[in-house]
Simulated assay, not measured.
Amino acid sequence: MTINRRSFMKTAIAAGAVAASGGTMAQALSGTRARNVVLVHGLFADGSSWSEVIPRLQARGLNVTSVQNPLTTLPDAVAAARRALDRQDGPTVLAGHSFSGMIVTEAGMHPNVSALVYIAARAPDADEDYGALAKKFPTPPASAGIVFDGDEGRLSEEAFLRDFAGDLPEAKARALYAVQWPFHKELLAGRTTNAAWRSKPSYYAVSTKDRTIDPDLERFMAKRMGATTIELDASHVSLISHSKEIADLIWDAVGV
């Protein structure tokens, strides 16, 4: 595991900007620790994909909510995350896996959010065409395994086991495949209107053996946002295969 720390100057500038508007980063940087964590899942999964991370966070006294992302449109998905954030009683770490990095980037502007955590996740800038960005990097193998039934897309079983959850025991990967929830094509057309990582502390876990999002694309996005970054020898589902490291990263974000 390797770690790259965000620069102090960038954090100080961002903190000052948010402090001027009374935002939660100022609260976080002045010593208010988050006691809440909201988790958002991506494509080819549901909220149970966080099941290995949740008990680790709860054991540390954190209030944890795993959002059931509707996977219909980006506005619908962001609204679901915002409703969960509305229910939190103070500073909250918002963490997302895979596609839900789009949701974290947009919903992360919520005043309760004190820090952002991206797990092998998309991290677009405001109004950025993520598809165009991704084309600058090698096409990940999992892309060829997406199949559609009308408007609904899902990952084939072969691609799921090989390219999505390749470092899990087969029985566990098949159980995860069984709860895969299809996504709507319209979801992929959405663009974020804000980039919360430009004003809030951000953390990123790169999966070096990822076959769903290219690892170098993950590194590019993490570096661009100035995130505190770890690299894990993991498939796309590091939140399951490396749940301790992911929980530790979220815990680091709790205490910013």
Score class of each variant (00 low, 15 high):
M1I: 06
I3H: 13
N4Y: 00
R5E: 14
R6L: 04
S7Y: 01
K10C: 00
A12I: 03
A12T: 02
A12H: 05
I13G: 03
I13Y: 03
A14G: 07
A15S: 13
G22F: 05
G22D: 07
G23W: 02
T24R: 09
A28E: 05
L29H: 01
L29E: 03
S30P: 08
S30C: 11
G31V: 11
G31P: 11
R33M: 06
A34C: 13
A34L: 08
A34Q: 12
R35S: 15
R35M: 03
N36H: 14
N36M: 04
F44A: 12
S51K: 14
I54V: 15
L57S: 08
R60D: 11
G61I: 10
V64M: 10
S66K: 12
Q68H: 07
N69H: 02
N69T: 14
P70Y: 05
P70D: 01
T72Q: 06
T73C: 03
T73L: 00
L74P: 13
P75R: 00
D76L: 05
V78E: 05
R82I: 11
R83G: 05
R87K: 15
G90L: 05
P91C: 02
L94W: 07
A95S: 07
G96E: 06
H97D: 04
H97E: 10
M102R: 08
M102D: 05
T105E: 06
E106N: 08
A107M: 08
A107G: 10
M109W: 02
P111C: 03
N112F: 00
A115R: 11
A115T: 09
Y118E: 03
A120I: 04
A121S: 12
D125N: 10
D125W: 01
D129F: 02
Y130L: 14
Y130P: 01
G131F: 00
L133F: 11
A134P: 06
K136N: 12
G145Q: 12
G145V: 00
G145H: 13
I146S: 10
F148A: 08
G150Q: 04
D151M: 08
D151N: 14
E152H: 13
G153M: 09
G153L: 01
S156M: 05
A159V: 03
F160W: 10
F160L: 04
R162F: 00
F164E: 00
P169D: 07
A175L: 05
A178N: 12
W181S: 14
P182K: 00
F183W: 10
H184T: 12
K185A: 13
N194C: 09
N194T: 12
A196D: 14
W197L: 04
R198F: 01
K200T: 04
P201C: 02
Y204P: 15
V206S: 01
T208L: 13
T212A: 15
D214V: 10
D214Q: 02
D216Y: 01
L217N: 11
F220N: 08
M221S: 09
K223D: 15
K223R: 15
G226M: 03
A227R: 08
T228D: 15
T228S: 11
L232Y: 13
D233H: 13
A234I: 10
H236F: 02
S238T: 05
S241E: 04
S243E: 09
S243T: 08
S243N: 08
K244Y: 03
A247W: 04
L249H: 08
I250S: 11
A253F: 07
G255W: 03
